[in-house]
Design a protein around this nucleic acid. Structure first.
Lengths: 191, 191
DNA sequence: GGCATTTCGTCAGTCACTGACGTATAGACA
DNA sequence: TGTCTATACGTCAGTGACTGACGAAATGCC
């Protein structure tokens, strides 16, 4: 097979992150990103479906890896526990990407258009998790519900983790799922 | 105050929904919507921040109404129960809007760009619910977590409701929150 | 009947994104 | 080593979303 192509993509991603941070997302054009990466605007849109996607790439890998982990989790685990151990298995990946995902997260926080895209990526992840749970025999409705609950707990855990970077993901996941279970079984354990 | 203006907006919303259903979202231009509504493209963008917003308007009312209901809920209710009764109070509004929101939902289902916007609207709703819970004394982290859980249960309830339109929202909410509590307190009630 | 406020039309412009077509490069195969 | 082919890339032209500036028309108040 010819021409690598994938290193042009990497240059484009790098250039996009830099320019977005320097001038802001709205103020930088796709042509500028392409120029810094040494290619044409047309090439930019051949690699990324739209301007936002330059910052969201490789998330599919994370999604499928997570879904596979859920499918491979011990069969005797209840849905939320299966999700929890799968989230826990991603700690190393998350740690390795901190240098890239840190600045990226800060950028997304102050850019509505990027937040919107982030939400659809998260929704896709939830879908994949729900599908994986269904493969474990969980009924459709319960699978979607559990996937959403798990993602909420995961986000909660990552938020607490960011507050105290010296801690581990595992302990924050434990706390997050405990919080979730505490909320679900409050004043009267049974109605 | 001069010129009504708000009826032009209504005509634009109606025209947008019609054209999107006739030709699809991507295939209809903002100029076409404006033409059917008897105004100019420029006027369209004065009423709506972008093309998608023509279908998402009035959601802010729903959001503040829901947040107010959460704040006004009995003080002795735990967070999830407060959310549940607030959701239950919206049944009449949802029923009244069925004629409009039904076709709209079908349209959104087959239009990725509209799904994306829907997700940000839902995220805004979750934020508002979390804020309302904080006013009830719930700590920040638990409030966002509970709001996400509540929204997941609400979506679950509405899905079941759509499956069986003759049923009531209340019973589906009861079932949805029961499902949620069941998932959160599964095999071992305590870790 | 003036006057202020708000909506709307017109015009011109930027930028995200796409299709068509031609070119260059890297590997497969003779 | 010289074709052959698949793939990445450049160029060009075009559509459509969205915005700023300016002027005109409509509405309510005095």
């Amino acid at each position: 097979m010819p021409r690598s192509g994938s290193d042009a993509r990497r240059r484009l991603q790098q250039a996009a992150l830099e320019l977005f941070r320097e001038r802001g997302y709205e103020a930088t054009t796709a042509a500028e990103i392409a120029a810094r990466a040494g290619v044409t605007e047309r090439t930019f849109f051949r690699h990324f479906k739209d301007k936002r996607e330059a910052l969201f790439h490789g998330e599919e890998d994370f999604r499928t890896a997570l879904a596979d982990a859920v499918i491979a989790a011990p069969a005797d685990l209840d849905p939320l526990s299966a999700l929890r151990v799968s989230f826990g298995a991603t700690e190393q990946v998350l740690r390795d990407n901190r240098a890239f995902s840190g600045p990226r997260a800060a950028l997304i926080d102050q850019t509505p258009a990027l937040q919107e895209r982030m939400l659809t990526k998260t929704a896709g992840l939830i879908d994949a998790l729900a599908g994986a749970l269904r493969r474990r025999g969980v009924k459709a409705g319960a699978a979607t519900l559990a996937a959403q609950m798990g993602m909420a707990a995961f986000n909660h855990a990552v938020t607490m983790w960011a507050t105290d970077p010296d801690s581990g993901l595992q302990e924050n996941l434990a706390r997050a799922f405990a919080d979730l279970r505490g909320l679900a079984a409050p004043t009267p354990p049974r109605n």
